[in-house]
Design a protein around this nucleic acid. Structure first.
Lengths: 330, 330
DNA sequence: CTGTTAGCGCGTTCAA
DNA sequence: TTGAACGCGCTAACAG
């Protein structure tokens, strides 16, 4: 079991100093003849940089933390995939950490990233998170809020949540539905709060009574949906604020064994592969995930590199209404 | 901008030696009075362990690498979520790396995990991977193959792929369908090869001609499916080997605007939230992901801790046929 | 352009 | 039980 080669081994074989090897490896100019000897030594010894040693010395790990509610979720798994790809291209690795909407777990995540000295952090906050919570938890570490907003001092990239909700609500109104309900789990999550606000604005501006169906957990949400759908003041259409909420709505339809005619038109947030294949094909508001991720990582890395301007940015991007049939469109 | 406290700072404040602090932090017995002083010093200084320094010294990073084809995929995103949770419970972090079924990218991933000194690796191999490829890439690092198999010398945990495919095929035969086709992308991936074998066994044992519809990429797969479905020798039923293949089959149905009567019964692999909600509700073979992940991590950590026996294990777990209606069941 | 030297923060000798 | 000293592998500072 021979040990891995170090810069010193390479230096010895190439008959140069260790720092010259280090320089060569970091593309600092080195005399061609020397470079060649080092290259060969690296080759024959199979030398590979030890990131742990480099991290200790330099204080940078080439690692970014990604804190999010859950990975197994269409929106976030797509985001994680894209983040991993972008990070790879920049020579970084990603440490994903989930908080499952629990503040305490989120704080544990932050502590972990401190211990591992992540160079930067992308975070989708747990409900109730204050800007100071994450700022004091991550002193001097670049942060980008993704699909959430912390304060004007922290970069963020989000969907134009209110606008998107307004568009969805108005589309439903355009079909002639008046009694539109808005359904979501966890109304305390930032993006959902905003979407609720957008929905409510439209409804009240038309003198319609907003009706937000929500519950602390999704079992209760399905229950409430059941009573709403079977009650006398049955909603005429639904605006669902996330893919997971939509899943629960459709599941409730199924559990209630509603006849197609009794099923309520619905628009959901988030697009995904199977959306066109459910019955009826789901009309959704698509988030521009690729763009969101690209912005988030550009901002994060420009902070890490110190090439960012002082001012923080709050990027907000439009959603796209993808009309299929569940909204009532032919 | 005050720097973070180190063991030395803590030692100074507690008026002990640095090594005593280190011992205290690792729960090595220390005199109670001393322990108290250290505890207080840690508290007032806000000391936190630096994992990068520890890693350099100890040679272990408390980090496991997870190499997989893609995160944005129902099966793997579920797996990643569970892996993250299990790893968290063991005080580890996860580095996810995707290879998108490309060998070269997989080799890059392996090199990265070497540089970051991952303590262990869970890998779902890219097609064409040889056992030696990963063994030489990861010298002396514990490896568990997940949803793939490398050799008898490497631990693995998989679905009983052949059995599962047999069950699915037999179920379709039980409905009276004879001309059953098997559809999958990437037939060179281990699990798919096995599933194809299981399907083929059943078909040939009944003197039926196996018909594997496959293509190097999913666009071509949809095209081939289209011609098959519209040809004269139209399959009577389909066995789809992955959630993604199923997505493509159903998409093809839709693209072809097949009338419900003309749609072909289908059984797919992998269960997911929207499966009961597509039209018709999807019959699937569910993989026991939770159990698979638990086994994988148990095996990996017992190797890392050195508590594992010498012999390697190849765990294979049964799939569960979840009958909904797409298979032809009432 | 190059080599020598000195730590980064920890855990582990070893001797007390 | 404790502390002093060393070194993990690397890069930054300095001198040549």
């Amino acid at each position: 079991m021979k040990k891995r080669a170090t810069v010193i081994d390479v230096a010895a074989l190439a008959e140069v100093g260790a720092s010259t090897v280090s320089r060569y490896l970091r593309n600092v100019p080195v005399k061609p003849a020397v470079a060649k000897r080092i290259r060969e030594a690296v080759e024959t010894l199979g030398y590979e940089l030890d990131e742990t040693a480099r991290a200790l010395r330099v204080g940078r790990t080439r690692t970014i933390g990604v804190i999010l509610p859950k990975i197994s979720n269409v929106f976030f798994s797509q985001a994680m995939q894209l983040i991993e790809e972008e990070a790879r291209q920049r020579g970084c690795t990603v440490i994903p950490l989930t908080h499952q909407d629990r503040m305490s777990q989120q704080q544990d995540n932050l502590a972990k990233l401190r211990r591992y000295r992540a160079d930067g952090v992308i975070i989708t906050c747990a409900p109730g998170t204050l800007a100071t919570d994450v700022q004091v938890a991550l002193p001097h570490i670049p942060i980008v809020a993704f699909d959430s907003y912390l304060s004007s001092e922290i970069d963020s990239v989000l969907l134009r949540n209110r606008e998107a909700a307004r568009i969805g609500t108005e589309h439903l109104l355009g079909h002639g539905y008046k009694n539109i309900a808005c359904v979501t789990g966890r109304p305390d999550i930032y993006s959902f709060k905003e979407r609720i606000a957008g929905y409510t604005e439209v409804m009240t501006s038309r003198q319609l009574r907003p009706n937000v169906i929500t519950a602390p957990d999704y079992d209760q949400l399905r229950f409430l949906l059941g009573v709403a759908l079977q009650g006398k003041n049955r909603p005429a259409a639904l605006l669902s604020l996330s893919d997971f909420a939509t899943l629960n709505v459709l599941t409730t339809f199924r559990e209630l064994a509603l006849k197609p005619a009794d099923r309520v038109p619905i628009i959901g947030f988030d697009d995904f592969g199977f959306a066109p294949l459910v019955d009826p094909p789901l009309t959704v508001i698509r988030q521009p995930i690729e763009t969101m991720v690209r912005y988030a990582l550009n901002m994060l890395f420009s902070r890490i590199d110190g090439t960012a301007s002082k001012e923080t940015q709050a990027i907000s991007l439009p959603g796209e209404l993808i009309c299929r049939r569940s909204c009532g469109c032919a």
